[in-house]
Design a binder for these strands. Structure first.
Lengths: 338, 338
DNA sequence: TTTCTTGATTGAAAGGTTTCAATCACCGAT
DNA sequence: ATCGGTGATTGAAACCTTTCAATCAAGAAA
């Protein structure tokens, strides 16, 4: 009748096995210190009673949690789930669980998750900061939590980070569009405060400014999903024909897919009337209505390196701060006439 | 110099504020029981000292964790992340964090996560069981953990569950293809042991068997991603022309996208040469190379209902077992000639 | 037989929070 | 001046595991 009989503790095991709690603990944590006979006996009792370690007590005693926390910007974006998966796999190898929180770009939710992780005393933290959480991160670090920033640079050698060169990515995209002969470019994405958006835009602008007669219009969105892309595209479609861009650079692939959808719906041909390039090169980019050109980020590598840096920091909290910047690459497909 | 000075505890706060630990605890948990003066004072001290609750100790004392665990089949599949997001949002409203584990269809990893959640004494568990974990779930339930099964039925009124009628979904898909005049159908997906695959296939078979001259070929895959879809399609392409299907029903949209890609690459026209229908209706289905027909599962609802059932069970562990079966709907797009 | 050595086992303390019965201080009523 | 009552505060106990100094047992060496 499912009576939630109180949980079995080491004490119960000890009593049932006729040994001390210390011995039970040794069986659990240092079996080599225990004589084979008692080891077998206690193990049997553990199984029989269905004893399960209470992780809360273990942590309390240990002072910290083996788990690692990660705050991810948007679980609906395959880019981030791929990175998270890379992290999770690396951590699983060393037996550390990953606790995933989804901030959805919302500073409030980001803060809520940081609170949670702080209360949980996680041993490490992976963050792609959205709000101005640096002071928060400093406090966590000073308290002994390893912190690694993912997909964003941090000045001043304060934190280890892995990032992809977004400025260069922005350049690659714009360069490609300009090479193809486009001159009226538009950049769709936002909000502008997001570092990645800002850098990709700046990179693009630098390239555009270097070419005579080339222009770049910035259409700011408040999120980075397909819906935002659709709305951004509609805004561009509403322009008088002579101002309408002949090439669109979307801040990520989800936005690009939305743009693509809106343009197709409006009867425009891609890439003949308007070329489109995205960013991230998620798996879906290749199988879009018109296969999408994109700036590829090495996302598995991003996750793996992030995990590696974090583990190094957990090992040696006073070790050197490491900064890794990975290179993006251009992937040309149909949507820009590939 | 980042000296990881030992964490500030209630005791430290009490000492600094000149009150007892009991009062500090009251400030934290029952502020209405504390006089306004002390409340203000203690709160100030908490801020000044940067005190953060130690969740391990709190849980130890409370006996259970507020968090809820969820084991998800495949984080790379937007269907599951959408469901998870629905769950997370419902839980956030009542201040419960969600700990997400990704089994990747692997029974071993599923077990690892269940172990973790059990050690963590989570107050509830959402599972889409992949292996034969029913005994495990029973044990957890008997121990007082609320358990709700997601996206799968369970016989015998043992567990509350939310599922979508997969048999009917399979029927809808096959019916639609048959209505369009197709007679040589193929079903791509697997492994066959997965309940959802089995039911969708069975539903399709029932419809096919009811039509004279209609056939259904089962191409079994070992996973459910785009790669599996591509390989499945290649297998079909290798058949002699007269045996080649004129319509393909994929067990989910990722597989369908892979199939679509392989067929397009091989120069076949969709839907003229071969029609394709997927399952789930993830957001990407609509923006595929050729917009994909699909059987839509109400995934946000699935997540919300799952959270609701779980919370009800946490409230009243001895309440009645609730079984909810949601209806899938057919969404017709270009890939079947919509 | 006694003393050493070694390996196995013990048991109490510590870790931080919450709970709750007990105490305290104070005010109004008698 | 005393009593009762009320609201605020206290402090010890409990939650479960791990650690480590101390003890014990048994066999080897003297």
């Amino acid at each position: 009748m499912a009576s939630a009989s109180r949980s079995v503790s080491v004490k119960d095991v000890a009593a049932a096995a006729g040994v001390s709690v210390g011995t039970v603990s040794n069986v659990l944590n240092r079996p080599e210190k225990v004589s084979p006979t008692t080891l077998a006996h206690v193990t049997a009792v553990i199984d029989r009673l269905g004893f399960i370690r209470n992780d809360a007590a273990r942590q309390l005693r240990a002072g910290s949690n083996r788990a690692v926390g990660m705050v991810v910007l948007d679980v609906a974006n395959p880019f981030f789930t791929d990175v998270a998966r890379g992290v999770e796999e690396s951590l699983a190898e060393v037996g550390r669980p990953l606790i995933l929180g989804n901030s959805g770009q919302d500073p409030d939710r980001e803060r809520t998750y940081l609170d949670l992780f702080e209360e949980q005393r996680v041993s490490g933290l992976l963050v792609s900061p959205v709000g101005s959480v640096l002071p928060r991160l400093r406090r966590l670090r000073d308290r002994g939590t390893a912190v690694v920033v993912v997909d964003r640079r941090v000045e001043g050698q304060e934190f280890s980070f892995v990032a992809v060169d977004d400025l260069r990515g922005g350049r690659l995209a714009a360069q490609h569009l300009l090479d193809r002969g486009h001159r009226r470019l538009a950049f769709v994405g936002g909000p502008a405060e997001i570092t990645q958006v800002e850098l990709r835009l700046r990179g693009a602008r630098e390239e555009v400014d270097a070419v005579d007669g080339a222009t770049l219009r910035f259409v700011e969105t408040d999120t980075m999903d397909a819906g935002a892309g659709r709305r951004g595209a509609e805004e561009l479609l509403a322009l008088p024909a002579e101002e309408r861009p002949d090439a669109i650079f979307a801040a990520n692939d989800l936005v690009a897919l939305g743009v693509l959808q809106a343009l197709t719906l409006a009867g425009l041909r891609v890439p003949e009337d308007v070329a489109i390039i995205g960013y991230d090169d998620i798996d879906f980019a290749a199988s879009a209505a018109i296969p999408l050109s994109s700036v590829r980020q090495p996302r598995e590598q991003l996750g793996a390196v992030a995990a590696e840096l974090l583990l190094a920091r957990i090992e040696d909290p006073h070790g050197p701060v490491t900064e890794v910047v990975l290179e993006p690459t251009l992937v040309v497909r149909r949507s820009t006439g590939g």
